[in-house]
C-alpha cells in the first residue's frame, strides 16, 4: 500500500440553475455528499430545491502505481451566488461545465458562467451535456461558441458510469496541463 502515490485533485462542477450539478456529484461520490440545498422561491416549476452554498463529494481513480482522489466542489447555479464561484474555485485544477440539453434557454447563462470561470483560473474544462444526445452536443458547441479543443460529452448526471466518463476526460486534460507546466518550468 505504501508504494502507491496518492494524488489529490480539486475539481469544480458548475453550470446553470437545475443543470444537474448536485445529482452529478451524488452519482459518483464515495462519501456522503455535503449538500446545502434549500427550497426554491423562484423557478419552482423547474425544481423545488436548489444549492445555495456548495456541494462536496469525493471519488477515487486508481491504477497500479497511483491513487488519484478527485475532490468535487459543486457550485450554486444562479448568478446571485457568484461570490461562491470565487470561493469554490480557489485552487481548482479543472472544472466541469454542466448544461441541460433539454433547456436551451439556460445556455446563455452557461456561456456567462464559463466566461467567469475562465477568468478565475487558467485550467482545463469539460462540458457535460446532461440529458443530451450527440446532436445536442453540436448545438451546445455552437451556442456556447466553444473552442474545438474543449471536450464536450453527452452525459446523464444520474448515471455513475456516464459521470465517470466526464470526470476521466477532465482528469486526462488536467494531467496533460500539469505535465506541460512542469516541462515548461524546467
Amino acid at each position: 500500500m505504501s508504494e502507491i502515490d496518492v494524488i489529490n485533485f480539486k475539481l469544480v462542477v458548475t453550470g446553470p440553475f437545475a443543470a444537474g450539478k448536485t445529482t452529478f456529484i451524488g452519482a459518483v461520490s464515495e462519501i456522503p455528499v455535503v449538500t446545502t440545498e434549500t427550497g426554491t422561491s423562484e423557478g419552482r416549476e423547474v425544481k423545488d430545491h436548489t444549492t445555495v452554498s456548495m456541494d462536496f463529494g469525493k471519488v477515487s481513480v486508481a491504477d497500479e502505481s497511483q491513487l488519484i482522489e478527485l475532490y468535487l466542489f459543486g457550485t450554486p447555479g444562479q448568478s446571485r451566488f457568484d461570490f461562491m464561484w470565487d470561493i469554490l474555485s480557489k485552487g481548482m485544477l479543472g472544472y466541469v461545465l454542466l448544461v441541460d440539453a433539454t433547456r436551451p434557454e439556460t445556455w446563455t447563462d452557461a456561456a456567462a458562467i464559463k466566461a467567469k470561470f475562465d477568468e478565475l483560473g487558467d485550467v482545463p474544462l469539460v462540458v457535460g451535456v446532461n440529458r443530451g444526445t450527440e446532436s445536442d452536443v453540436d448545438k451546445v458547441v455552437a451556442a456556447l461558441r466553444l473552442d474545438e479543443a474543449v471536450p464536450v460529452l453527452a452525459c446523464e448526471a444520474t448515471d455513475k458510469e456516464s459521470v465517470k466518463q466526464v470526470l476521466i476526460t477532465l482528469l486526462i486534460n488536467v494531467v496533460e496541463q500539469l505535465e506541460a507546466t512542469v516541462k515548461g518550468s524546467i
Binding site: 455535503v34 456548495m54 475532490y71 470561493i87 480557489k90
Partner: peptide, 23 residues
C-alpha cells in the same frame, strides 16, 4: 481551498468538514 490538514474526526468526516470550513 478546502483541503484537510488535521481534524479530530475520522478522515472522511474531516474531509467533508474541511470543504465546509473553507466555504
Amino acid at each position: 481551498d478546502g483541503m484537510l490538514i488535521h481534524s479530530t474526526w475520522s478522515e472522511v468526516e474531516g474531509m467533508r468538514a474541511a470543504a465546509i470550513s473553507a466555504a
